[in-house]
Design a protein around this nucleic acid. Sequence first.
DNA 1: GAAGAAGATACAAACGTTTGCATTACGTTA
DNA 2: TAACGTAATGCAAACGTTTGTATCTTCTTC
Lengths: 337, 337
Amino acid sequence: MAETGWKRRRVTIKDIAAAAEVDPSTVTRALQNSPRVRTATLEKIQRLAREMGYVPNMAARTLVTSRSSIIGLVLPDMTNPFFAELARGIEEEASKHSLRVLTRNTDGVEAAERDAIGFFAELKVDGLVIAMSRSTTEYFKTLEASVPVVHVNRDDLPHHVSCDRYAGSRQIVDHMLQVGHRRIALVTGPAGPAQQPKRTAYVDALDAHGIEYNPNYIFTFNGELQDTRRVVDELLALEHRPTAVFAWNDLCALGLIRHLSLRGLRVPDDISVAGHDDIAIARFMDPPLSTVHWPMYELGQESIRYLYQLRQNLPAQAPTIPSPTVRLRGSISTLDP
Amino acid sequence: MAETGWKRRRVTIKDIAAAAEVDPSTVTRALQNSPRVRTATLEKIQRLAREMGYVPNMAARTLVTSRSSIIGLVLPDMTNPFFAELARGIEEEASKHSLRVLTRNTDGVEAAERDAIGFFAELKVDGLVIAMSRSTTEYFKTLEASVPVVHVNRDDLPHHVSCDRYAGSRQIVDHMLQVGHRRIALVTGPAGPAQQPKRTAYVDALDAHGIEYNPNYIFTFNGELQDTRRVVDELLALEHRPTAVFAWNDLCALGLIRHLSLRGLRVPDDISVAGHDDIAIARFMDPPLSTVHWPMYELGQESIRYLYQLRQNLPAQAPTIPSPTVRLRGSISTLDP
DNA sequence: GAAGAAGATACAAACGTTTGCATTACGTTA
DNA sequence: TAACGTAATGCAAACGTTTGTATCTTCTTC
């Protein structure tokens, strides 16, 4: 027997006002602990509110204050622990300012991204954090008129929080070269503004060791875990097979390792693999993954701090985040000369 | 919370009405493609709205209609791909009803869970999907008065969507027994209503094979990946070491495998491991993980369908989800007798 | 004990939509 | 051409808060 239970009228501030024999405005003030209301009245009202099961109506409040105390977070992929870490940092920091965080994910689809953003705009969120979007600059230009936005990992956009995309990649490729690797493959992700520095770091590192960069050693990964199989196939089909692979990210590295293993190659004995991001499971992989530690949690925190400055039109300079560092675990072998 | 620059006045329906020399009510109707407005007027209004950059104000709309077209999703842990899959199913199905999904995660903390729920209640969401909460029945009793709620994986609560928690576990333990394992450890998670059926399945399976259940073989895992180390230590300290482990979930299995490997034990040669959930990376682990496939995506879809029925007071019987099945990959070895 | 200062509370307008009902405009039929 | 039906639009109230200002108490102070 289904109840019509939740259709029953919600208790409003007016109901409390009536019960307390007082004006609605007094109730509002009492509920926000205003010093303007006498202690006795205040307590009586708060007790009544509790007893009557009062739940504030955000819509009404937002309508009049045009503030929602909500931060919108737009993520391309909840599946990737990388972004979960970001969300943690954001929530942690947001709660300090008593802001709540609502998340929408877009599966990396641009249309979904715009829908999410438009939706948050309708909701009148107090701020928007957008991680690694695909959308273009002009789009955000118009958006920024209505809501403060901070981008994570989009160095090319006006208000961003990011960290040195070149340094970490450069370091790990340098390391592979130092331990003797000469044929190093690079697996890049789906095209996007984030790809270039990684590729440059790769080319530069080779360059610094006097190695000519070989376009055949660069692969493009579509982001689906299954696609690593194709990459491995192509990689193994090369005449001079690489001895090391720098993967797009840790999840990609995981897939590569798996399919290499299926093809009979052991990591790192037969081929070395490096990842990027340092997600939680990286150290639990077999072998534990050498990777670039990307400080996603800190980026989350900083993005909220930045947003907070933006909201009050402070000079809000982009925060500085420490450079990413390399975590060497077991997935890169030293080559005998 | 100082007001600021980008806070320039938003375009409202009245502005459009003025520009189109028409009444606000006509604008509303035009924007929802009502047949009550002449085609010419309708097009003119819609064009104007686009040109002027009109963004509807959800707060105002929600206030009058007392519907928000939002579904709230409360998750204990975004890091776990398991829940990401649920979110996918929910979003997919929700978009069919043109509902949007907003997510909050609670890190498994009960206080955070209540905050999230309370928040969604204030937001006047049209429905709430709560996954594997810790909270108690009475709490939800009062909640259901204000919003329809569907629980995922909480068989004990009134409106839930779940699937046979016993069958899958039973099957995989049976399988381990069939291939010759006699000393099988069970790793359970943090206490909660979800634990019992798994444990019962484990005990029953042993029973059916005439094996007495050994309390020393049951370990409690706290949910943190690092904690697997302790579990492995305790496990290896046992006098008669188990030959197989049924882990709480796949992530737990991953950690166990890693620490077993650090202690020099190979999976599955030295010890077998089974997981639960079948998250995306399970098949990419080394060895690929044998596990119970839990249909999280389908559960997500069903929870929205259920919610939809609840909302219109249909007889809404709990939907039936196919039983979970076992995915045998490489992490369980056959024992020589 | 009266004037004035706080202190406490009430009043009323506003926020931006939606929607039932009233009104006007237009084309059709007798 | 008057009467009528229908199509298109306008009017106004309502949703539940918040907040600036006005009003009413109560206490000081002389």
